[in-house]
Design a protein around this nucleic acid. Structure first.
Lengths: 194, 194
DNA sequence: TGTACATCAGTGAACGCGCGTTCACTGATGTAC
DNA sequence: TGTACATCAGTGAACGCGCGTTCACTGATGTAC
């Protein structure tokens, strides 16, 4: 190797924050280079193009998130309730500590074909579906685990979205116990009906 | 008036469907004109530009949706449960019957500053918050109505999102009763804790 | 009713800006010997 | 250790394509009288 890639992470960090704030199509190479303190051509030493970089960052960030979430959801030594609770706390802590990364994941969710890009074992959607499938139910197996996963995901993520847009004033992390309670009640639905 | 605006609605319909499918930034004037069967300049007879048209369509579509949702949420002659149920059924029916409009609303939610664009009396987020505030609770008033509204919105919308991306195979409309049950349980949270 | 005129939705070629990308070049670092 | 060379991250000017927008024009419709 001739030279260490000193600017690569600066470029990635700049791109990530701009993508999170404005979305990929409204972010220009010029913006990224300016924020990273780098020439416009530098990006092409590391990625074939802007979109390829966006996809790579999406994959990296979501899989990083999934890799941290997975052991919390599936720790065999802990109860369902305990795993649920710490998973939710983890997500909101992540939102607090890495708002750029979290927002980027949230926003680009609609922009990329996640299932083609992400390994299922690290894709949060797949992880939650698996969690729900494993979760004990009076009916076994559950009627529609994907629906239940959607209810959980929606209930957990929407407060973060609403906080992000200034509607919810309290930080979700302070509300994690309430959300956990809500999710427990959702998990009970089929049991209650059985 | 010299001539009726024959092509205006064709332009709007073409724009709406392309915006819903690809997002506003990835849709070109050329695409819109082509699909509408119209010259590229025609758009500028009705809107000052592409972005202004996108904002106008967003406002029109979300407020149309809100205008239909509002009387369902607040019909004084019906119980909370009944209003919740028909509101959820309405949303999923809208998703089934107007998938383009519904998807456009969902996708551009993150792209526009809704609170500056929409009248609160027709903004679905505001409507649901008001619904939650009005809903009876053992604690009156509720501790955090916005959180509860977020939980409800997330739980209702996420199944539609998951259906749209092919994860949830069953159409949400068939699952409306289950989702209603889930939302009722969410509404009970504070009561259960009190 | 007929005629002259005004209006304006729609056309489509042209424009020019901004964008992503290219490329010849630099020079610091790593390697060979 | 010193010297010659190879590598490649980073530069920044240049390019050219595609985009949103403009504009002179058309012609159908509505209005005035």
């Amino acid at each position: 190797m001739a030279r260490p890639a000193l600017k690569k992470s600066a470029i990635e960090a700049a791109a990530l924050s701009l993508f999170a704030a404005r979305g990929v199509p409204d972010t220009t190479i010029k913006d990224i280079a300016l924020r990273a303190g780098v020439a416009e051509g530098a990006l092409y030493r590391h990625y074939p193009g802007k979109n390829e970089m966006a996809v790579a960052l999406f994959k990296r960030e979501v899989e990083k998130f999934g890799a941290l979430l997975s052991p919390l959801l599936f720790d065999p030594s802990r109860s369902l309730r305990s795993r649920l609770r710490s998973s939710i706390r983890f997500m909101y802590r992540y939102y607090r500590d890495y708002p750029v990364e979290f927002t980027f994941i949230l926003m680009t969710q609609h922009g990329f074909p996640e299932r083609q890009i992400l390994r299922p074992s690290l894709n949060p959607n797949d992880l939650v579906i698996r969690f729900v499938k494993d979760a004990p139910s009076e009916r076994s197996p559950r009627r529609d685990p994907v629906l239940l996963a959607a209810l959980l995901m929606g209930a957990v993520l929407q407060p973060a979205v609403m906080h992000r847009y200034g509607r919810l004033k309290t930080h979700p992390l302070s509300l994690a116990d309430k959300v956990t309670l809500a999710c427990e009640r959702l998990l009970e639905i089929e049991r209650a009906r059985a």
